[in-house]
Amino acid sequence: MKWLISNKGFLCILFAVFGVLPTFANSYLLYVSNLALLFIILAIGLNLLIGYAGQLAFANAAMFGIGAYAAALLQVRLGVPYWVALPAGGVIASLIGTLMAWPALRLSGIYLALATLAFAQFTLWLFMHWEDLTFGATGFAVPRLSFAPLPVTPEQGIYFLSWIITIGLTLFAWNLVRSRVGRAFVAMRDNEVAAASLGINLLRYKVFAFALSGFYAGIAGGLHCGLLNYVAPESFDLFQMVIHKSMVIVGGVGSVVGSVIGAALLVATLELLREFKSLQEIAFGAILLIFILFMPLGLVSFLKRVLPGWEEEVHLPDARTAPAVEAADELRPVGERSP
């Protein structure tokens, strides 16, 4: 029984629920759950970058878009089948993510945030203006997927595909953060100089963190184009970025399970807030604020406190308990930064 309330048990139960959902869900619930799966991938990818590697990047929505555009354009322009286009989208987003590691070598904190924000705005501008390639602001339709000869409708097909990929990427991240690489990320986040003196190659790990995060976002983008059968710039704007950031922080910075919870919870919240009609923005702002104020370290740190079986890894940054090392700018109390 103890196993059930541990973080591993929770993950298993959650993904099992996602797995049986198509047997009873209507089209609306299935679609929203599918979105939730995509957002789980996005949140984990972003958390690897922000929470583990400590890079305050604001370009996740752009990476998501690059994955979606790449996967969709490969299909539409070159007739590449979806099975190839989807991973190719991930790889392309990953390569572009690598480019972003370059400014990250010189910048951190708020400056890196702005540089990546500018990059995201530039990407959005390209989606809208490189009309010969991207079809411009009106977007374009992508052919509906067929899962023949499997006995599933396209809706169920893309759902199960997303489900399998989400589980795979969650497991990968779970193992990664417990490996040498994960520890190197955390060391780099907590103190770059100390990490470097321990023999951690900052360049290599930063590039890897950006590439990995880009890959996650890119795969989510490819699934997004398979789910919507339509790609348009609006899906990748800064509102998306806000959603991704919120999922990571609400769930818990530096926790894979936290991102899973944060993503599922945020998608559910956004849908439940529909009842507030035109007051949704106010309700969303208020709920977000309440979460941050009462659980500044995320839901997982709360769960860790109340559930004894919850074995969270040590990766949660905590300003109060980890004063021994000098925290990186973005994780240090804002009022106390050295000039």
Binding site: N26, S27, Y28, Y31, V32, L35, G139, H224, L227, L228, Y230, A232, E234, S235, F239, E271, R274, K277, S278, Q280
Partner: peptide
């Protein structure tokens, strides 16, 4: 019954499905 599409295709699909199925 009003449903918000937030001017975004993904949300519009959710809104349309909500209106039709829920």
């Amino acid at each position: 019954v009003r449903q918000d599409d937030r001017c975004d295709p993904a949300t519009a699909i959710a809104a349309a499905k909500k209106l039709i199925f829920d």
